[in-house]
Design a protein around this nucleic acid. Structure first.
Lengths: 325, 325
DNA sequence: TTGAAAGCGCTAACAA
DNA sequence: TTGTTAGCGCTTTCAA
């Protein structure tokens, strides 16, 4: 049913090793036999078994990307850019979706270890000791995406500066009160960084008020929609709401519009990430996710080639995208 | 560096086979030795090599999902539901993103064959002979997602009925002219099905006019934004635009709003898919993607267990979601 | 240029 | 209950 290299050897009359050399484009077979062998390979529809190849050569040529939400176009883009680099290098890419769940993260990591991945690019919403230890104990190369890390290489965006600038834009537009809606700090380190950015501005402006509203959930459209109910109770229009990301912003806006509020007259809502599927007039922050993914992948392969090089961190600038006002 | 089963055997003083039995929870080892072996396994941080296990037992327990755009939340949801079922069955899932590119589709399929996947769930935007033949010649089980198929099991939504109903709703709302914006027929079989649904209605209403505007691109927000320029030239407000899916609808709406048009007063735009990140007032069609993914996965595993059963097709109802008017 | 043989890490049949 | 042995599909070394 499924042919093996032995079948090809038997049919062609050559040995396994010659067939292997022919298939893998290695020297040591005459042009004639190579062509003959390849013709039989083709005719028989033979495809080498990757597992056997891996086992035999003791190398697995696989990397993984671990993200918390593949349904967020932001991460989908990141995966795409990583996959491209990996394919160039002849590596397979495994995409793992954790849903921000640490238990699933660890279960997936164990599966990846079973598969002997050489490296992972991981988007963790928070520092995870258990994860780091397991990665290190198995000598898996790792690039952390989104936040800095003392243990591994990392690629991040300048959240602090970006949220500072967004806050500044709102203040310059005349808003005297800013409200940041984000995941609880225990859930997501980005909350802290972005809050710090906003605070850095607000602290220098005594007449500007700053509030935070937290949710303990993943940052989705639904979450934004739900938390918006709380927001309107606390916050009377006109007001400025800074949402943790675009999805949450969309959810908030949907709720507000459903209540009959005018956007941005009653509530101005800002986002983060600059995903494609956004409302026309949403001010957001562009995270150069494609470039960051590319950078992360390159760093990972450099690390695989040279495990002992110094740990590096790349910080990307995140600029304001003012599509609204 | 990386331990093998031999190391564990050596350290514990037991044989490979005993270690193997202990690890795989198989009978034939005393409770005492099993516990001892497992303690060493734990201490040594040993994880079995899945490739070797696969090779040795001659089974690979892997399925794949092939989708055209993982950045579309619609497909991300589908993948999630399939993964859940697969995990229950002890299978790994590989997600492949083709970008609607047939060349990439074939390259990926060859990789999957190399990995000896047992089955695939595939979302092809169009019938692909080469793909079908390759799948069949390697005895890979297959479930087609979205459209029916004579070669494989399939799961689909009732596009025809849904677009009929959406058109009916617009007509009932007073629109005498409907314009459907969709991918060219060669690119996407869904275009045809949805057009047929609308035509079925329009043909019974002599006073209603029906137009189509085609694009030759993937159905994204950007595509919608771009094609909208063409739409406004052809179509004067007030008018009804039926977009191929929600992403395209969002793109169109963004462009129209940018031009200063009122939605839905000047142009009413409808979508398809019912993804989360949509504008508040978008009328769309709910495709029960989660249930469909679940169904597809179950069909796939049934087919793996019983390769000779009759080919099946499940059709899911797709109901109107009227969030607008 | 070719082939024989060993070995990769594991499972499974069978013997002890 | 435990160990020995063969074998999974492949690569690689080395000898012919």
């Amino acid at each position: 049913m499924k042919h093996t290299i032995n079948d090809i050897a038997r049919i062609t009359g050559y040995s396994k090793s010659s067939v292997s050399s022919a298939i893998n484009n290695k020297p040591g077979v005459s042009k004639k036999t190579r062509e003959y062998i390849m013709s039989v390979v083709k005719k028989m529809n033979y495809t080498p078994n990757e597992h056997a190849q891996n086992i035999s050569r003791g190398s697995y040529r696989t990397v993984a990307i671990i993200v918390r939400d593949i349904a967020n176009p932001f991460y989908a883009k990141m995966c795409r850019s990583v996959e491209e680099i990996a394919e160039e290098k002849g590596y397979s890419t495994i995409i793992v979706n954790t849903g921000g769940n640490d238990e699933r993260l660890m279960r997936s990591l164990n599966n990846l270890i079973r598969k002997r991945v050489e490296g992972v690019i991981v988007d963790v919403s928070n520092y995870n000791f258990e994860f780091s230890e397991l990665i290190k104990s198995h000598f898996i190369k790792c690039v952390v995406f989104g936040i800095d890390s003392k243990d591994f290489d990392s690629v991040e965006a300048d959240d602090n500066k970006a949220s500072y600038n967004m806050a500044l834009h709102l203040v310059n537009s005349g808003y005297k009160s800013l409200t940041f809606v984000c995941p609880i700090l225990e859930r997501n380190v980005y909350s802290k960084r972005r809050i710090e950015g906003i605070k850095r501005l607000v602290d220098s402006m005594p007449d500007v008020e700053f509030k935070t509203i937290y949710y303990d959930d993943s940052s989705s459209v639904h979450t934004g929609y739900d938390i918006a109910k709380e927001v309107v109770e606390i916050l009377k229009p006109p007001a400025a709401i800074m949402a943790f990301n675009d999805l949450v912003a969309i959810g908030i806006i949907q709720y507000l519009m459903g209540c009959g509020y005018l956007i941005p007259e009653d509530y101005i809502v800002t986002g983060f990430d600059n995903i494609d599927s956004i409302l026309f007039s949403l001010n957001t922050v562009n995270i150069p996710v494609y470039e960051m993914g590319e950078c992360a992948a390159k760093m990972l392969f450099e690390r695989i080639q040279n495990p002992d090089k110094e740990i590096q961190t790349h910080v990307f600038d995140a600029e304001l995208i003012l599509k609204g006002r």
